Simulated scan of single mutants.
Amino acid sequence: MMAMASLITLVAGCGAVTTSSPGSATSNSSKSSKPVIGMTLMTLTNPYFSEMASSAKADAAKLGMKLEYEGANFSQATQLSQVDAFIQQHVSAVMIAPADAGSAGTLVLALNKAHIPVFTIDTNVEPSSYKSQGGHIVEFVQSNNYKAGVIAGQEMVKYLHGHGHIGWLDFPLATSVLQRDAGFESVIKKYPGIKVVSRLNGKGTTPGGLSATADMLEAHPHIKAIFDINAPCGLGAVDAIRAAHKVGQVAVIGLSGSEQAVSAIQNNSVYKYGVMQEPELESKIEIHSIYNYLHGKKVKPLILTSVFRITKQDAAHYAPLAYK
């Protein structure tokens, strides 16, 4: 809680902002006495994002704003339609966690054209998709994904004692995942005894993680561990390992901040180590930033929140922070 308070104070304590940028707060055409904030997330089926949305809505209300949120079901076309609806509604600002980071520049440019400030959360829009056309994002808030990948890599090395075949559940459409990938790879590449024998798209979902892990285990029966890029993927991997009767033979290590994942780490039969993020903190910071921006204050272009290593020994300690 102290970290949350200090970060919010940091955001709130900035000075005046210029009003000439494409996303200038003073240029918005909304005439509502209560600012309306639009939020479109890549999905709401992942509890990470559903908690982020509900927390943002509550925090916005406390500040006298109204938040309307949507899930895009991992569809760029759906997200574009949602952004268009927010533009027609003349909202005061829009928060985006893009379904496809590489193509989401169209969302940013459309909002810029409508003079609606853009804020991104968890996953950023690929800069090359909008900056060359003069696009502008006010602020991006995310957990320290590179560090999360580094921690997962360290735990993987420790678990395998530097040797063994591993599988990798990926989701390359999200820049946040690419950062986790980079952090993980920066560690394991130093250990030639650890070999990635399969790297498949787990689609960021439990069914995707289950299917990809089942394929890995069938094609590479000597895999000793699976790296997952989020809790739903990891839980799918756990299900696949149980179905293949490989409990005690294959471990899951990776991003694991949901209640179910933290509980699985505490049980420790398959999910051995994890890394926790705080979606509630990310959304709280961004909502306060939007409030400050709309009131003429500067906000930071990038804010990183902390991540935490989770082991069997401290899982109970971190359980209250887990998202549902």
Rank of each mutant, 00 (worst) to 15 (best):
A3P: 00
S6I: 12
L10I: 12
V11N: 04
A12F: 02
G15S: 12
V17K: 08
T19D: 13
P22Q: 09
I37E: 02
T43A: 15
T45A: 13
Y48N: 04
K57T: 01
A58G: 10
D59L: 14
A61V: 09
A77C: 10
L80C: 08
S81H: 09
Q82D: 14
I87L: 13
Q89I: 05
A93G: 05
G102F: 13
A104S: 15
T106F: 02
K113G: 08
D122G: 00
N124H: 05
P127S: 13
G135D: 01
G135H: 02
F140M: 11
Q142K: 10
Q142R: 12
S143K: 00
N145L: 04
I151A: 05
G153N: 07
V157L: 09
K158A: 04
K158Q: 07
H163K: 15
L169P: 00
D170Q: 03
A174C: 08
R180S: 01
D181A: 07
K189P: 03
P192R: 09
K195R: 10
V197Q: 05
S198I: 03
N201D: 15
L210G: 03
A214Y: 12
L217W: 00
H220W: 06
I223A: 01
C233E: 08
G234I: 01
V238F: 02
A240W: 00
K246T: 11
V247L: 07
V250N: 01
V250T: 11
E259Q: 15
I265L: 06
N267K: 14
Y271V: 03
G274R: 00
V275L: 03
M276Y: 06
E278K: 06
E280M: 09
L281C: 12
S283Y: 05
I285V: 13
I290R: 03
L294G: 13
T305M: 07
S306I: 02
V307W: 11
Q313H: 14
